[in-house]
């Protein structure tokens, strides 16, 4: 599977973004959200037990992620219509503030190397990706183990507290180039 320092794969996927008629689906690519950090998290199957808890937990922290210039994107190998049905069906998912990616052809999950060899579905993987689309953090839980989004937020905070100010120069160091 892809690891820290590697480029997040290119993709173009249908996503479920809303329950509002006519606005339910949208195409999302790796080029969307430029200048933003991205938090991608995948779950094995819609309509299972562990998933809504952690998806709702990411939803509750969405504003905290947004404050840190980070876009949260959930996803599984289910279709966008299954995502929609699940959101309509589950009270905790109705107001979900971030898109649910539908990797129905399994291309993104395969490129990431997170397809479970037995089940053929996405493993419970989390990627924090910087504004240059470079993976900066990866974790994978066993299919049955839920995630702690608060921990992902802590990691993002730590990744974003690099000392960007030239005041941090030590004598003899190269000039810090802040990319804009």
């Amino acid at each position: 599977m892809l690891g820290v320092g590697q480029k997040f794969p290119s993709f173009s996927l249908q996503a479920t973004v809303s329950l509002e008629k006519g606005k339910t689906f949208s195409t999302i690519t790796d080029e969307d959200y430029p200048d933003q950090w991205k938090v991608y998290f995948f779950w094995p199957k819609d309509f299972t037990f562990v998933c809504p808890t952690e998806i709702a937990a990411f939803g509750k922290l969405n504003k905290d992620f947004a404050d840190r210039d980070a876009q949260v994107l959930g996803g599984s190998t289910d279709s966008e219509f299954v995502h929609l049905a699940w959101r309509q069906n589950h009270p905790d998912l109705k107001a979900l503030p971030f898109p649910m990616l539908a990797d129905i052809k399994r291309e993104l999950c395969a490129a990431l190397g997170i397809l479970d060899p037995q089940e053929g579905v996405a493993q419970r993987a989390t990627f924090v990706v910087d504004p240059h689309n470079i993976i900066r953090f990866v974790s994978v839980n066993d299919l049955s183990v839920g995630r702690n989004p608060q921990e992902v937020l802590r990691v993002l905070d730590a990744l974003q507290t690099d000392e960007l100010c030239p005041c941090n120069w030590q004598k003899g160091e190269q000039v810090l180039q802040v990319s804009v």
């Binding site: 200048d35 210039d69 100010c165 802040v178 804009v180």
Partner: peptide, 24 residues
């Protein structure tokens, strides 16, 4: 102290959106 990390957010240095030289 110079070798210890600042652990302070200073993202606006990267994301301010104004002219980089003027910002400096």
């Amino acid at each position: 102290y110079g070798a210890m990390p600042a652990r302070l957010r200073m993202q606006s240095i990267r994301t301010h959106g104004a002219d980089p030289a003027d910002f400096e």
